[in-house]
């Protein structure tokens, strides 16, 4: 069980073995939307790391210290999504003020972090796996770093694809999916590397 494993294994499992993008298929909208440039992808990746780690920790506290004691488990979905939405707003304000260039690069994708399933999923998974607070923290760092790593790698490949001769019907999105499929195949090789 994940909650009996040590912290290093939890991190690696979330980071590459069960990669959030390629194995669990979460956060794909922004993945395909923004990964045309390495710079924007890196920015998005870092934003996701920040939001995921904070939002997961807050959600964990909300769940175990607010919802469970009052038997309000059925409000889990509503409570988590509100936590994340308000957190994204907060981050948006900061980036807009401090890093206007980055804000321009994100375009419409920053508000879309709210509907980035990777973040809500990490919060849910942490609860589903019955992780402790510290484990949950490491887990969320692992998941979001995995997101960041893959989106940057993928953007690198896509930048090259732009200049390659591809059958016309596959231009754009289709070839991106096939590339992602091949990357997913490579990541599948990590499965079974760590026994969890």
């Amino acid at each position: 069980m994940l909650n009996e494993a040590n912290l290093g294994l939890i991190f690696l499992s979330a980071f590459i073995v069960n990669n959030i993008l390629l194995i669990r298929f979460l956060g794909l909208c922004s993945f395909f939307g923004i990964s045309t440039q390495i710079k924007a992808s890196l920015g998005m990746g870092i934003a996701v790391i920040f939001v995921t780690v904070m939002a997961c920790s807050i959600s964990w506290i909300v769940y175990y210290h607010l919802l469970l004691p009052f038997h309000l488990e059925y409000l889990r979905t509503v409570a988590f999504i509100l936590t994340i939405a308000s957190f994204v707003q907060f981050e948006e304000i900061i980036i807009k003020k401090k890093l206007p260039a980055l804000y321009k690069a994100f375009g419409i994708y920053l508000p879309l972090i709210t509907t980035n399933c990777a973040i809500l999923a990490s919060a849910f998974l942490g609860i589903d796996y019955k992780l402790s607070f510290i484990q949950n923290l490491i887990f969320s760092i692992g998941i979001s770093s995995g997101y960041c790593l893959v989106i940057v790698l993928f953007a690198g490949i896509r930048e090259e694809i732009e200049f390659s001769p591809i059958p016309e019907n596959f231009r754009g999105v289709p070839i991106a999916f096939i590339t992602a499929g091949l990357m997913s195949l490579a990541f599948l090789g990590f499965k079974g590397l760590f026994k969890l």
Binding site: M1, K191, G192, K195, L196
Partner: peptide, 9 residues
């Protein structure tokens, strides 16, 4: 019985 397999428990 709970046991650890290849992809999870």
């Amino acid at each position: 019985v709970k046991t650890l397999g290849y992809g999870g428990y």
